[in-house]
């Protein structure tokens, strides 16, 4: 009796389904909508797993071993948390983290202020508006390798354009200082290139933010007798703030792992004054071939960026909700 009722149940359901067929499952007989949806997104998921998640997990695994990429056949030993302890107590690593922090803070501060100012200036109708906007965006469109190499030329002390222009302003001879070779100047030489290359990106995001402010808010403020300065503080800035914060987030994440420009311009030198974390990582991984150690450092950097970005996104959301 019970058996009969359980076997008759699916038959009933099937009947109902057959009477109200779903358009997609009619064409792909035997597949539910859900299954078809999964089939469509599965290539992307597989790809994501293969190129994002797997290397991440594999790095975590390697960070607990003494694996060396140049000796793949050597015996693999588990190291526990040895590398993590080494890294966190190594003053050199802390120094490179500090160099990274200085670099990130300086570039973000300059790029944000400069980028917003430029966006504010070009966010109005003037002749050749589109042309100048494009010109401003050019540095961002160049490959970092090109940028790194030609700035290296510009920075040459004897015949570089940078020294030739800056030296007369400072009243010194062009050959008297080396941007890339000086302990004091080398960090700034990289900051200048990064600002040159990536300020346009901040301009672009800020411009989108400024364009999103409806005209009638300015009109309302004008009728409410708000001065231009007050309009800026009470309409422009608060409305554009989420966009500015977004630009800061993107630039922050990017510059925390800054590698290409530094590697091309100074390779971390002179000494280790411009050795940011990614350079330390590259040296450990591909010069000393300490893959396990480098993996541990990579994991630490990942957790740091991930954690900071998460805290920041929470703050960003709070600003957006206001």
């Amino acid at each position: 009796m019970t058996e009969a009722s359980t076997t008759s149940r699916p038959g009933l359901v099937e009947q109902v389904i057959r009477r109200h067929p779903d358009p997609v499952s009619v064409r792909f007989r035997g597949l539910s909508d859900r299954t078809i949806a999964w089939l469509f997104i599965s290539p992307t998921i597989v790809l994501l797993l293969a190129i994002n998640l797997f290397p991440l997990l594999w790095t975590v695994y390697l960070s607990f071993t003494n694996y060396r990429a140049n000796r793949p056949n050597a015996e693999l030993r588990g190291m526990g948390t040895t590398y993590y302890e080494q890294i966190l107590s190594d003053p050199d690593v802390w120094e490179s983290m500090q160099a990274t922090a200085h670099f990130v803070i300086a570039t973000i501060a300059i790029e944000t202020v400069l980028g917003f100012a430029i966006a504010y200036l070009i966010d109005r109708k003037f002749r050749g508006h589109a042309f100048w906007t494009t010109v401003i965006l050019i540095p961002m469109m160049l490959p970092p390798a090109v940028v790194g190499n030609f700035w290296k030329f510009l920075y040459q002390p004897q015949n570089g354009l940078f020294n030739a222009i800056v030296a007369p302003v400072l009243g010194v001879s062009p050959g008297s200082f080396q941007m890339l070779g000086d302990v004091q100047l080398a960090p700034w030489s990289i900051i200048i290139v990064d600002v040159w290359m990536w300020t346009p990106y901040v301009v672009l995001i800020c411009l989108a933010g400024l364009r999103s402010i409806p005209d009638y808010l300015y009109e309302a403020a004008e009728v409410d007798r708000a001065s231009p300065l007050r309009q800026f503080w009470s309409v422009t800035l608060p409305m554009a703030l989420p966009f500015i914060m977004l630009a800061v987030l993107f630039r922050g994440i990017e510059n925390f792992k800054m590698f290409d420009l530094v590697n091309l311009l100074t390779s971390g030198g002179p000494g280790s004054t411009t050795e940011v974390a990614s350079i330390t990582l590259k040296r450990a991984a591909f010069e000393s071939w300490r893959t396990g150690y480098a993996s541990a450092l990579a994991v630490i950097l990942f957790v740091t960026v991930f954690g900071l970005a998460n805290i920041y996104v929470k703050a960003l959301n709070r600003v957006k909700q206001r």
């Binding site: 808010l217 009109e219 309302a220 004008e222 009728v223 708000a226 608060p238 409305m239």
Partner: peptide, 21 residues
């Protein structure tokens, strides 16, 4: 004259409130 000098109040068709206030 500028809008501020005219001392008119304007109610717009769209709700032109300052959203962050």
């Amino acid at each position: 004259s500028e809008p501020a000098e005219r001392d008119c109040a304007f109610v717009f068709q769209q709700y032109s409130l300052y959203p962050h206030l």
